[in-house]
Amino acid sequence: MATRYMDAELVGKRMSSRVRKNTGWKGLFFASTLFGLVVLAVLLVRIFTQGIEYINIDFLMNHLSTDASRAGIMGAILGTAWLMVVVIPVTMVIGVGTAIYLELYAKKGKLQSFIATNISNLAGVPSIVYGLLGLTLFVRTLEFGNVILAGGLTLSLLVLPIVIVAAQEALRAVPGNLSEASYGMGATKWQTVRRIILPAALPGILTGAILALSRAIGETAPLTVLGIPALLIPFPEGIFDTFTALPMQIYYWTIDASLVAEYANLAAATIIVLLVLLFLLNSIAILIRNKFQQRY
């Protein structure tokens, strides 16, 4: 068969350059991925070589101390754990509730899209600004003082937009014909949401929660603004106790490293503990997500 436009010779000539280009682009994309991986590897190696030998039972269990060789981070670990006790329920309840309202109940219109856009914008507000909000609202106006509740609520505000946006997307992705089937049998909206839409959206919602949690656990700036110390204070025993948290500890030790060089090693060791904690929390969330993951 004769070709009219596809000149075999020309096509052949161009072919090798097209294939070369294809390989080139693939290489570029791989290099981008490699960049991130290398940086992460360097960070991990650096931190682990410096900090790992300082991690032992005493370091994990002891109180803080002005003597670097006796200092421990139990207070900071407990502080971070208590923060999560506040952040997880607050963000899940308020975040998912907001997403359900916006996605399933609110009338679609200008107001709804205005609110949705602004929530996305809030996700981009610098964390230190949330710190100032928390300081004004929780520490001063509501007179909580710089306790766990104030810190937890501030961090909750900070990560709420992430949870809301992720949950909205997860809810939107549930096929409409599932809820139609439910309505078609005389189910109310709430029954349909509770029994059909939420279970189907749960994996997506949990993915958002994982992201949000990872962000909250490592935030330092808002806590500095709230005036969270890294001093010799008793271990926190409830949400109304003063506290310090792992990122704060890392921050102060890094600054103090100019005075006592050994603090830098303690900071590195604390970073390892924070990373392990983060990894554990994420693993739990992923396990829960996989348990509920269903095809639809």
Partner: peptide, 20 residues
């Protein structure tokens, strides 16, 4: 009430839509 109506009137859809 639509819930009353839909309890007495069942519906089968174009694409089979069993729940997961």
């Amino acid at each position: 009430r639509v819930e009353d109506l839909r309890t007495q009137v069942g519906m089968v859809f174009q694409k089979a839509n069993p729940f997961p």
